[in-house]
Design a protein around this nucleic acid. Structure first.
Lengths: 211, 211
DNA sequence: GTCTATATACGGATAGAC
DNA sequence: GTCTATCCGTATATAGAC
C-alpha cells in the first residue's frame, strides 16, 4: 500500500514504465477488449509473464491506465474552475484552451473514456465525484449569478456544459470522419483546432445571450 | 448477389432477422471485440451454428450491422440537405430535429460508429462518400452564399459542421457522465434533449453572426 | 433449417529455470 | 527481474445427425 515515489515521468526507462506506456497506447487506441496482453508485451519489448509479474492481470493494468486518463482530464478543469481571480469569460477561454491543447496531443482519450466507461460504470467515476466538484466551483457560482442578473439567458446549467464540451471535444471524437469529409491532413486538422481556441469562446458568449 | 426483397422491417420474425436484431443490439452496445457470437446466439434464442449458417462469420455479420447504421445516419441528413424549397435556417432546424429524434431512440449509435470506425477504416466510409454528397448539397451552396453576402461570418465550413454535430451528438455520446453530473434520470435527460431541438438552431444562428 | 458435438485457435495467466 | 514452456478456459467456426 506504500505510495510509489516516482520521478519527472518523461524519462523513466524502467520496465514497469515501458509496460505502462505500451498499455496506455494500445488500450487508448483500441479499447480493453480489442487489446491483447500479447500486443502490449510486444509493444513494450518484453513478454507476457513480465506483464503479469508487474501488474498481476490485464484488468488491473487497465484500471491504472483509466484512472490516469480520468485524472488528467479532471485536473485540466479543476485548475481553471476554481480560480477566484478570473471572470466567467476568462474561465471559458482558459478551459477551452486547456482542453484543446490536451486533446491535440492525446486525441484518443475522449473516445476511450466514453466508450469504456459506458460498459464498465466503474466506481472510479463515482469516486472522482465530478458532480460536487462542479457544483462547488467558482465557475458554477458565476454562471448562476450571470443568469440571475439577466446578463445571460437562463437555462439548465447542463446545457452550458454540453455546449462547451460538444464544441471542444466532439471534433476530436469525430476526427476520422471530419478529416475525410474535409479532405484534411492531420496538420490541417490541428490548425483548425487551434483556430477554435479563439472561436469557441466567442461563439459561447453569443450563444448565452441568444434569444 | 440477388437483392433481397424484404418486408416492412418491424415485424419480421424470421430467424435471420432475429439474429440480426440480436447482433445489432449487442454490437452497438459493446462493440465488435467485446461481443461474443455466443452472446448473440443466446440473445436471439438460437445457437452459434445457426448464426454461421446464415451469416458465414462474425465479421460479415458485423459489416452488415455497421452498414445499416451508417445508412440510417446518412439518410437522416440527405433528406434535409437537398430540399430546394427550404432556407438555410429551416434546414438547420430540420437537421437538428431529425437527429435528436433518431438519437433519443438509438442513443448508442454514434459512439458505436465513431469507435469502431477509428480502428477499421473500412472502405464502407469511402463508398458512402459523404464528402461529395455534402459539397453538392443545396445546404452547402446556401452556406457559401450566406458567407459571401456577409449575412454570416466567414469561416471554414467544417467549423459549421463540427459545431452542429457537436451540439447535437455529443450529449448522447457523453450521456452517462452528463447524467451523473446532473443527477438526471433517463426521462429527464431526454427532456433536456427535446429542449435542445428548439435551442440549438437559435444558438447556431447566434454563433454564425458572432464577432 | 436447426441442433449437438467437436475441431482448432487464441488469449490470459502461471510454473519454474536462469 | 526476465525468460521459455505450458496450462486451461474461451471463442469462432464446422461436421454431421436429425
Amino acid at each position: 500500500m506504500a505510495a510509489k515515489k516516482k520521478q519527472p515521468v518523461t524519462t523513466d526507462h524502467s520496465t514497469e514504465e515501458k509496460i505502462k506506456r505500451a498499455a496506455k497506447k494500445l488500450f487508448t487506441q483500441k479499447g480493453y477488449a480489442a487489446t491483447k496482453t500479447r500486443d502490449i508485451a510486444a509493444e513494450a519489448g518484453i513478454n507476457i509473464a513480465l506483464l503479469n509479474y508487474y501488474f498481476r492481470s490485464k484488468e488491473k493494468l487497465f484500471d491504472i491506465i483509466m484512472l490516469e486518463h480520468l485524472q488528467s482530464f479532471v485536473q485540466a478543469m479543476s485548475v481553471v474552475m476554481n480560480d477566484n481571480d478570473t471572470t466567467l469569460e476568462q474561465k471559458i477561454e482558459a478551459f477551452v484552451a486547456n482542453y484543446i491543447d490536451l486533446l491535440i496531443h492525446q486525441p484518443d482519450i475522449p473516445l476511450f473514456i466514453l466508450s469504456e466507461l459506458r460498459q464498465h460504470p466503474k466506481e472510479l467515476v463515482a469516486k472522482l465525484d465530478i458532480r460536487k466538484f462542479l457544483l462547488n466551483s467558482s465557475l458554477f457560482k458565476q454562471l448562476g449569478e450571470a443568469m440571475q442578473s439577466g446578463k445571460i439567458t437562463p437555462m439548465h446549467p447542463l446545457h452550458f456544459i454540453m455546449n462547451i464540451a460538444g464544441l471542444v471535444v466532439f471534433p476530436f471524437v469525430g476526427s476520422p470522419i471530419l478529416m475525410n469529409v474535409g479532405s484534411l491532413k492531420q496538420k490541417e486538422f490541428e490548425a483548425l483546432m487551434m483556430e477554435r481556441k479563439k472561436l469557441i469562446p466567442v461563439w459561447v458568449k453569443a450563444m448565452m445571450k441568444a434569444k
